[in-house]
Design a binder for these strands. Sequence first.
DNA 1: GATCCCTTTCCTGGTT
DNA 2: CAACCAGGAAAGGGAT
Length: 369
Amino acid sequence: MMCDALSEISELLQSAHDTVEGGAYSPDSGVSSCSDSAPSSPILQTPRSSAGLNSMTSLTSEESEHITQLANAEFYTDTEQLTSEWLPTTASDTVFASNGQWCVQNPPHFLELDDKEWHHRYPALGTGTYVDGDWVETQAGFKMCRTTDGNARVKLGTNLTYDIDIHIDIPDNAPAIVKKEIITDETPGQYEHNNNSQYGYMDINNNHHHPFPSYQDDNCNGCLQRRNYYGIGHCAGMGHLDLHHPHPRAANPDERPTVRSRRQLTRTERLWEFILRLLGDAKHNPRLIEWVDREDGTFRLNNSKAIALMWGMRKNNGQMTYEKLSRALRYYYHRQILEPVLGKKLVYRFGPHATQVWENRIYRPQNPR
DNA sequence: GATCCCTTTCCTGGTT
DNA sequence: CAACCAGGAAAGGGAT
């Protein structure tokens, strides 16, 4: 009996340690702040321009012209075309790049990758080391793949490859960035600035894009789904792509400008994000936590003590208990990050202000209660 | 240093 | 009676 208890504690500690130290999520994963989307500080920067672009191979004049055309990005400036410019990058996520903005759909794909899977899919680590797999043809005429350091790589031809810096750590920064847009929207005289931002969301069912500017419309005609306050029900990631301000990399990787220190982008992992990560980690789901109804966003804590312990370790707080953790969770009710599930113990539900988290990307309609 | 935000801690009282 | 739930109040602490 004692041995069982000890081994269980040991297992919990190991589990907690694994999660804290080696989980898929790292607060260093480049959580962008609101300012990341500011035009003056592009997250995604073009590689080397035709003057400054150093491709993996030398550029031909034709390739240079191609790059110039992409940099001009005329096809991004037409709103009508924007609706069809969702660019598939992998089988399970979508990048929408336009007019200096990019948007990633289905962030849970990133969030729910545990460390092992992440490295399996994107084995290359470190700046300047890239994966040549998972190249996907985009509708904009280039191929794109993502790297583990939060960047992406773009290929404009058979041999022409160059690096772009794109922070794709969506789950955390999406609400903040989109929220900023809403704030701007509410600021008289400033919204015009964002008219070309092309923030919007993708209708999963009808496969069309809804630009954001109609914030006042809660429901979108033709769309069965409903946008939440942050507009992240369908499209949860925002960033900035500046095709007009090249940021050439130095030949020497050590001298390459750090586009945005991942440290600078970090913030503490929120409790609900921690919970979400556990839900996406096969090491803990369903042993410690599991979805009750994934589409509904309802989940159950199967081992509240262990989760509290793990959260405490995450926060370097050995005094954490489920009582305290649950109080923090209850504070989420007010902000609609979580919703109470009445009559069921240890069961919570993600609310409309949590990012769209379920893998099937179905956003639950507003709760009529 | 001030402020904001997100917890953390403690608490009372209620329910399962 | 233990475990959980609800929520007030105040403080801690990180980020800006």
